[in-house]
Simulated assay, not measured.
Amino acid sequence: MVNILEVVHDESLPKENWWGKNCVCQINDFWFLPKFLPSTIRVLNEFKPLPNDVILASFPKTGTTWLKSLVFSIVNRSSKESLVKHNPHDLVPTLEVQVFGTTHQSSSITTHDESHSTRLYSTHIPYQLLGNTFHSSNCRVIYITRNPKDTLVSMWHFTNKWKDADQDGPWHLEEAIEKFCSGVFPGGPYYDHVMGFRKASLEKPKNIFSITYEELMKDTKIHVKRLAEFLGCPFMNDEEVDEIVKNCSFDILSSYEVNKSGDFPSWFQVPYNSFFRQGVVGDHKNYLDAKTIERIDALTRDKFHGAGFMYGI
């Protein structure tokens, strides 16, 4: 096991190429983009959650943008105007990207008492590394996951919209498949990431809420109600729920100018419009052949079904 306190000064971390000349670095069996390694270490060493904090956790490209808009709207009931003017990732900043990254100062979240308000953050850091931080307070965590095949295809599309994609050359789907299956993937291995939070949610259901993208898509209203109850702010009537579901729908969110913008945020190398592609279930069928689908399904049976999580196929 790597000593987290020493990682920032250690140049001997395992490294692997995952796309062209781009590499990922390994800490305790998980892979991270080098750009966010120092800020990830800062989160692990410095972040002290407050009891009322809500952390939205996820593997990359599993429904994070939608979950951010929904949870922000649940906590801030009169939030439609904020969603019109701000991308969901600016409303719910990511700990290792914005909050502890180079564009923001983490001191702003620790120097004043906000113990009676709800602070919303997100993270892609696996539970296996961040679990002790969650245990240090009574904060609540919401974890969303998505079918592995759709996750892979979404990440492939997303990566090819990066600012350096033209310079590095396209990330070919065949290479993306190999890297995903081997676990050498930003945030990966995917299956370990999901199971870390899955097991924790079963052990600590009052603090960790786990949901799948497919569940949320199938009956958004029911699960928005469940999320509100988990967060301690249940709805008084169905009209409030309907309004949030409507305002956070893919069609509505993707129609706002801020989310159609080709501008790049200061905190990542993709344009804002990259966060809104299709928002559907089963898109992998348009890109993966039968052999690849069976290959990933075999992994899913082993990693998920073998552990009692009947999901992903």
Rank of each mutant, 00 (worst) to 15 (best):
N3S: 14
I4E: 04
V8D: 14
D10A: 08
L13M: 10
P14S: 14
K15M: 12
E16W: 02
W18Y: 15
K21D: 15
N22Y: 09
V24L: 15
I27P: 01
N28Q: 11
F30Q: 00
L33C: 14
L37D: 01
R42H: 14
V43C: 06
L44V: 00
N45A: 13
F47M: 05
K48D: 01
P51F: 09
K61W: 07
K61C: 05
G63D: 00
G63M: 00
L67V: 05
K68M: 09
K68L: 08
F72E: 01
S73I: 11
V75L: 02
N76V: 09
R77C: 06
L91T: 00
L91W: 06
V92H: 03
V99N: 00
T102P: 03
T111D: 09
S115F: 09
H116F: 10
H116M: 10
Y121D: 02
S122A: 13
Q128F: 03
L129I: 03
G131S: 15
N132I: 07
T133S: 07
T133V: 12
N138G: 09
C139W: 04
R140K: 15
V141C: 07
V141E: 00
I142N: 03
Y143F: 10
R146Y: 03
P148W: 07
V153R: 01
S154E: 05
M155G: 04
W162A: 10
A165N: 08
P170T: 02
H172R: 13
L173Y: 06
L173S: 07
I177P: 03
K179E: 01
S182A: 15
G183W: 01
V184H: 01
F185G: 03
P186T: 10
P186N: 09
Y191I: 03
D192M: 06
G196Q: 07
S210A: 14
M217F: 14
M217E: 08
H223L: 13
K225L: 10
K225Q: 12
G232D: 10
C233Y: 09
M236Y: 08
V241T: 11
V241M: 08
D242I: 05
V245D: 01
N247E: 15
N247I: 15
S249M: 06
F250C: 07
I252F: 04
L253M: 14
Y256C: 06
G262S: 15
F264P: 01
W267P: 02
Q269K: 12
V270N: 13
G279E: 02
D283F: 11
K285H: 11
N286Q: 15
N286G: 09
Y287C: 10
A290G: 03
A290S: 13
T292F: 07
R295A: 13
R295Y: 13
I296D: 04
I296V: 11
F309D: 07
M310W: 13
M310G: 05
G312S: 12
I313E: 14
